[in-house]
Simulated scan of single mutants.
Amino acid sequence: MSPDDQLAKGSAIASSPHEPGTLKPGEIWWRDHQPWLQERGYSLRPRYMPDWIPSWKGTTKLWFRCEDGLGPVRPNLLDATRTSDGVTVVLKRIRPSQHPYEIDIGMYFSSELLKSDARNHCVPIYEVLDVPDDPDLKLLVMPLLRDFDDPHMETVGEAVELFRQLFEGLQFMHENHVAHRDCMGPNIMMDPKPLYPDMYHPGTTFLKRDYSSDAKHYTRTKQPVRYLYIDFGISRKYSAEENSPLEDPIWGGDKTVPEFHRSNDPCDPFPTDVYYLGNMIRQYFLKPTRGVEFIEPLVMDMVHDNPSERPTIQQVVARFDELVKSLGSRKLRSRLVYVKEDSALRLFRNIRHFFRTTYYVLARYPALPTPSM
């Protein structure tokens, strides 16, 4: 998809019956609360200033090609700049009356006790803001993250490192008696800073912040990244004594959970987490790519129709560790091939991969790109 096509797609998302490029109803709240957020130390983009005048007004510029032309896809999320240090963060608007455990669970994993643990792959919460004019509204301040598979992974080793971190992170949650209950693809993100040293526009992620050109990035082999679980809106934390808690089925983003289709009887959410993660790997890797077939037997056990037949996450981690030991450097450095590549694109990527890999071997970049904490 060309840059203009991507911008046009974004403009279609942002369009509304009123004048193109102007604030959508879901953005009005952010504009109205901009002065308060500024006081709290968070600066919004020009689009959300009370006196904003669109930059394309009176010019020949197309509104969707301007930095201030597009709003967020989700009205409850918006990027901001922390004025104390210039770091880009994300503000998430939530109602505790609807999601009463999200703040407690998020802050638990962000606590001093747990945040320094390398196995903790839960998105950190920097701060919780009380909205002054609505007692049932909070803003969670979190790091700016990016979809875990954007850009696509280049090697088998990069995919294996993703699996390792996700298994490790879910094990950490379960050891702390938390069931995520929605750990599917869109709720898995990555810290983009290693890949994008100059970062990108938060709303148009393929462009630089000033829209001047494409946002350039490294590969994960050259700059390893850390993956994080987000969105604890339907998660639950249990006591250490509750070994097999029972919860009424609650539908997350993945609508394929076998036990939910069979009945509405309460079930243990921990095996369901294992299903979610196994199905993510099946949908994002085993079906559309070639190169990670070695993990298929483990994944098929993780997505077993009978929850009692699924391995625990501890068993998943142990089996995965044995699998990784059997993979040599050549296998880990091999290209992750996407099935839908046409022959010309595949040839180009194969040639590029050969030269990249030669450089990485000579420069002694590890085949399994594990980031530092």
Rank of each mutant, 00 (worst) to 15 (best):
V257K: 01
I281W: 03
P269D: 04
T289Y: 04
K287W: 11
G86F: 07
Y196R: 06
T221N: 08
L137S: 06
T358R: 15
L162C: 07
S329W: 08
S235D: 00
H174T: 15
L207S: 06
L145A: 08
F232K: 04
G169Q: 06
P269G: 00
P258C: 03
T370H: 10
N279K: 12
H261W: 11
R356C: 11
Y108W: 02
I94Y: 01
G252W: 03
V128R: 00
W30F: 10
L145N: 02
G41S: 07
Y359I: 04
Y360M: 12
R262T: 15
V299W: 00
H180M: 01
G185E: 15
P311E: 02
Y365R: 12
K331L: 14
Y365F: 14
G185K: 13
F167C: 06
H177W: 11
H33N: 15
T81D: 06
R146L: 14
S334L: 03
L228N: 02
L347N: 11
R93W: 10
R335N: 05
K61S: 14
L144M: 14
D191F: 08
T219A: 05
D32M: 11
M184G: 09
I351Q: 13
F285Y: 08
K340F: 07
G252V: 01
R364W: 08
W251I: 00
S372P: 00
H304R: 06
C122D: 05
